[in-house]
Design a protein around this nucleic acid. Structure first.
Lengths: 350, 350
DNA sequence: CCTGCCGCTTGAACCGATTCAAAAAAGATC
DNA sequence: GATCTTTTTTGAATCGGTTCAAGCGGCAGG
């Protein structure tokens, strides 16, 4: 690796112009067989491994890769089931179309190095909240981007998301049809520690996704004659670690305890099941619980979880196409969720 | 996004040379404050988001990113616990040093699109076997690379690996110290379907890692007076799906069945535990089992797994440094594993 | 007033390819 | 053999920056 061989060197060695040499590698049909072989021969002799991507890049402008950006340290992408599932599908889609995938983490602390500003990609997928500064940075870069979840409401930001309202509505509907009348909502991203939050606090939540899910639950329950105030919403941490405190409160009075639990994520639902069964409560005989997301772990769990499943594949395909095929969504594009009934929901106890 | 703004445009607008404008962004201390501000002002007015990475790249040659290449479809990187753990650590290390990480899949079928030949990176980490064509492709590209596992023996290929022999030796040693005398080895990548394989077949295995682990087990057991022939080696699929068939054979005669199981991966060990407990056998009272890798799932499992833990973090750090700091290992660099005793191993039944 | 030095700017070369209009070569037709 | 096509090949422009030797103006010292 003393000095790099350039296309020019190969062209000279083969006695042709650089343009012809370039064609040999990119549009061989334009070059006479004889010449083509001569150039290939020269390339082989010189140990030339084909045109360097950086050169091509500069000229064509297309990197053929997309950046997956999160406002979290990168390991988060591998530990959170939702993010992981989405990333898996995006990776698969990229792979299938021969596009590259680069991981980018953007935390406010170290805005240096390989970030949104310097990543060599054609556009970005923004996961983990369209957090303001993430969106701003991306806009500054001037590359196309699609947000995969919503933070502060901003219909200007192109996004591909699930229909949170409709999904939540369907989830509540499912439990209502099973005869449940006493509910509780387990939500995340609702501010500080565990505890019950008021409807107004929910409506003030930063996460658009969370707000819409709450509205969906409420809408379905209201139609059944249950007002917001009759449905306690509890704030759970994203990983469901503090689920016990919330549930202990809810199930202190077993008579008045909810029989239908509406969890805003599968991770929380699974944590809830673990706690409930640990307390001797039976799921779904005593308590039904429905999750949200439809992550892999939900299906694999010892007690398979009923959940509103996101169309991960479709999201990934639409998002990648938006960037690579310049098929940007106009505003927000909502995809429907699908109710998947498994073992965690059943008829309300009599 | 009618037309992109170039550094040149900014320079012109600010009335300075392009070189000065470049310095404003890269080495501001060289430019007089007054001029610096003027250029920044012009940039802001024009909506210039800073020098484009592709331009810089061409000149400097450094992408500041590494490619993680696997000879499997990309989703494999997220589903296999070992790959995932390694990738997580690599991602974290890259993140910490502000380097980018790109995922590359190379399967023989579609060698087109974003592959080793076209990825914009400074070098590659090869996971999932230094499978011949993977190594060859990478060498052709002419970028530095480090293999993270070994396939056909080739001491010329730079690699950063764990000390398979020593680790396996220690694993067997651990069970011997607990008094076990009847063993079986559960290995992977040992050819077709399930079933017992002969020592010679093991020695002919393509995977260097597997061969070394087997030799490590044998060495320790031989010192205790147990010849190779007394230790059946069974071929299990990588995901442990067919573990039942192998164990059914081994435990057909309960009297002669092994009390110590040496699994070449945690994934296999966990599958084995699931099968054994399903059959009413108690771990570790009836059967002790020790895994290999030390993946996250091993610690989290209902019955935490005793395992030989790989220094994932260290591997990641060394590997990334090798590429980015040009600190290539000379030949193969072996890192020690650490015995972590958890709940799956105990004294041999009397 | 001249000289030497210092700090900031400039201008041009260069990085490694792709692209395309135009020239050259080859082939076809009369 | 002359003319018209068609196929190949060439040469130069271009992509968007970085780098560095050389130039410039101002100031201190003699």
């Amino acid at each position: 690796m003393t000095k790099a061989i350039r296309l020019k060197d190969v062209a000279e060695a083969a006695g042709v112009s650089q343009g012809t040499a370039s064609n040999v590698f990119n549009r061989p049909e334009l070059v006479r067989e004889e010449v083509r072989e001569k150039v290939r021969e020269a390339a082989r002799a010189l140990g030339y491994g084909g045109p360097s991507p950086q050169g091509r890049l500069l000229r064509t402008g297309k990197v053929n890769a997309i950046g997956f950006a999160a406002d979290q340290p990168l390991p988060y992408l591998f530990s959170d089931p939702w993010a992981r599932r989405l990333l898996t599908e995006v990776a698969d889609v990229c792979d299938a179309r021969g596009a590259g995938l680069a991981l980018v983490s953007v935390t406010e602390e170290h805005p240096t190095g390989w970030t949104i500003e310097s990543a060599l990609v054609d556009g970005f997928l923004l996961s983990g909240g369209g957090r303001q500064f993430l969106v701003e940075m991306t806009q500054r870069r001037g590359l196309p981007f699609v947000s995969l979840s919503l933070d502060a409401y901003d219909s200007e930001v192109p996004a591909i998301c699930v229909d949170d309202f409709g999904g939540a509505y369907a989830a509540a509907q499912h439990l209502l049809e099973l005869g449940h009348r006493r509910f509780a909502v387990l939500g995340f991203a609702l501010g500080e520690g565990p505890g019950r939050v008021t409807p107004d606090e929910v409506r003030a939540a930063r996460s658009m996704n969370v707000r819409k899910r709450a509205r969906g639950y409420w809408a379905a329950l209201a139609e059944a004659g249950l007002p917001e105030t009759a449905v306690p919403v509890h704030a759970i941490s994203r990983d469901g670690a503090n689920i016990g405190e919330a549930l202990a409160l809810l199930f202190a009075d077993r008579e008045a305890a909810p029989t239908g639990l509406l969890a805003m994520s599968d991770r929380i639902a699974l944590a809830a099941i673990a706690w409930l069964t640990g307390q001797g409560l039976r799921v779904p005989q005593d308590v039904s619980i429905i999750g949200f997301d439809g992550v892999l772990e939900a299906a694999r769990s010892p007690l398979p979880l009923t959940s509103m499943e996101q169309p991960f594949r479709e999201i990934a395909e639409r998002a990648v196409a938006a960037i690579l095929d310049d098929a940007m969504p106009r505003g927000q594009e909502l995809l429907p969720l699908q109710l998947v009934v498994r073992g965690s929901t059943g008829p309300a106890p009599v």
